[in-house]
């Protein structure tokens, strides 16, 4: 199967040449196949946020290559970069990042109107993604009027409406109660399995991670262990993750 994300020897150094330098990523390499649901786990300071920022083109690596959907993203600038973000990647953030002066519908439609899709085509696309995420009822409400779980669904709808090559999640359940978190993860699983959406989730929460098919553990800027779920059920995988964390964190 084709790789939707290819990371080759990515290094990230913070601090200028004449200052004290910190290496946040040390030659990290891995691939994500199309249709995969992959998790990246690590403690605070492990480099996982740096990695996600680089993957999602919000930051640039000091050295190495990042290809998304076959395109080298490290050299993108200005409009190319903006267009790449709106076409190829979708984001869900821990704190939702919805625009609170727009209704849910307007929030979801935004990436499409940014791409210049005609109004006629936007409406059915918004409707269809809203149905998949069960948020048709709240489309005309503002973010301040809906719950955290609903906000994250709206954010997911906004991330997916332009049919990106990959969906990046940065602790998407971090601000949700356990019930909403479970619902969101179920939805993501269904999107992955039924609609073939590739998902990359960054988290430090073993429960969220247990929904993934494959997990990469990152520590001090290096990818160490890799876990695959294979045919295990989720609970078994969850325990395997906990065990792994126990040894990995030592």
């Amino acid at each position: 199967m084709a790789n939707v994300v290819e990371v080759k020897k990515v290094r990230k150094v913070y601090g200028k040449a004449n200052e004290k330098q910190t290496m946040a990523l040390k030659d990290v390499s891995f691939n994500v196949q199309a249709g995969e649901f992959i998790g990246i786990m690590g403690a605070s300071g492990s480099g996982k946020s740096t990695l996600l920022n680089i993957l999602s083109t919000l930051d640039k690596p000091t050295a190495g290559d990042v290809r998304i959907n076959g395109q080298d993203v490290t050299g993108l600038k200005g409009n190319q970069l903006a267009d790449f973000r709106s076409h190829e990647v979708g984001f869900i953030f821990q704190d939702f990042n919805l625009l609170e002066n727009l209704t849910s519908r307007e929030n979801i439609a935004l990436p499409l109107s940014l791409q210049g899709v005609s109004a006629k085509k936007i409406a059915p696309q918004v409707q269809s993604i809203a149905e998949k995420l069960s948020i048709t009822e709240i489309l005309d409400q503002y973010p301040t009027e809906i719950s955290g779980g609903q906000k994250q669904r709206v954010a997911a709808a906004r991330a997916l409406v332009a049919q990106p090559a990959i969906l990046f999640g940065d602790e998407p359940t971090g601000a949700l109660d356990s019930h909403s978190a479970r619902e969101l993860l179920d939805t993501m699983t269904s999107l992955n399995q039924n609609d073939g959406v590739s998902i990359l989730l960054v988290t430090h929460d073993p429960f969220s991670a247990s929904y993934c098919q494959r997990i990469l553990f990152i520590k001090d800027g290096v990818i160490g262990q890799e876990l695959k779920r294979k045919d295990q059920d989720r609970t078994a995988f969850y325990h395997q993750i906990l065990d792994e964390l126990g040894t990995f964190e030592d």
């Binding site: 002066n101 727009l102 307007e106 109107s113 109004a119």
Partner: peptide
Amino acid sequence: NTKFRLTGLHSFTLGQLSF
């Protein structure tokens, strides 16, 4: 006006303005 609103950043600009 759906057509106007769904063009570029209009929805955002209008949202900012009404606020």
